[in-house]
Amino acid sequence: MHLAYFPGCSAKGSSLDYELSTQAVLNALGITVWEIDDWNCCGSTPAHAVSTELSSALCARNLDLAAKAGADQLLTPCPSCLSNFRATAKRLEDPDFREKVNALLDTPCAETLPPTSSVLQAIGELVDCETLAKKATISLKGLKLVAYYGCLMSRPPELMHFEDPENPMLIERMLEALGAEMLDFPLKTACCGAAFGIPKRPLTAQNSGRILELAANLGADAIVTCCPLCQMNLDLRQAQAEKAMGRHFGLPVPYFTQILGLALGIAPQDLGLAKLVVPMDALLPKLAPKTSAPNA
């Protein structure tokens, strides 16, 4: 199966650690992906806020590149890129809309486009939890974690087809199989405040603050994420959220790929752990090689 890969802009900048750990984990699981040549930004929120056609043209160029490379599927680690791709593919089914988008492109977009998926969902489908547990060399026992999915991984459900849209459990199932204690987390699909950290900081600080506060109150050691923007709001902007909530959190916010990677025995530097603004170092001593006893 030819799996094309779209890293997304943040993979080359603010979420380099997501990219590193994604590649390391895919590699360890024997999943081969090909980065599409010459990809461009999906337009993110600003493009669709300005124009649906513009947003879809930016996405269509990438989908077209993947189709022409013969991809069976296009994977991206970023839920926001994925949501834009899926919305575009859906809108292109309407011939009038397709015509408007083609008018913006150098060459018309391919008629048949490969299905798109998140790296998270793809791993979940390609590797079941048992296999994952068998491949793991390090036990996550002793780690108390919450999984935080954010908005776009599961919404809108008609497009995303990801678990129960109000209560996804995929990260929980994976990390539980690896020994972690996964706490029930009612805000797992709440909004972190998106890209408003720059133009309207209180919107982001309040919403991220609420998520951090609940995780801290539940006694979580870390919040496990799957979205570069959520991760940035909860980690890099944690001090701003602390100010808004009037308390200190000091909660590490790793990507699910970083935690998976640790369990698979990948070295912290190959997972970009040093890039976390709130360090995870205090948790690493809890991790020990799996003992050979079953259930360990």
């Binding site: 806020a49 908005c151 919404r155 809108p156 405040g193 998106a194 309207k200």
Partner: peptide, 11 residues
């Protein structure tokens, strides 16, 4: 202009 586009409302 303050809408975060989170689609909780739609869901």
């Amino acid at each position: 202009w303050l809408c975060l586009g989170c689609a909780t409302c739609s869901l």
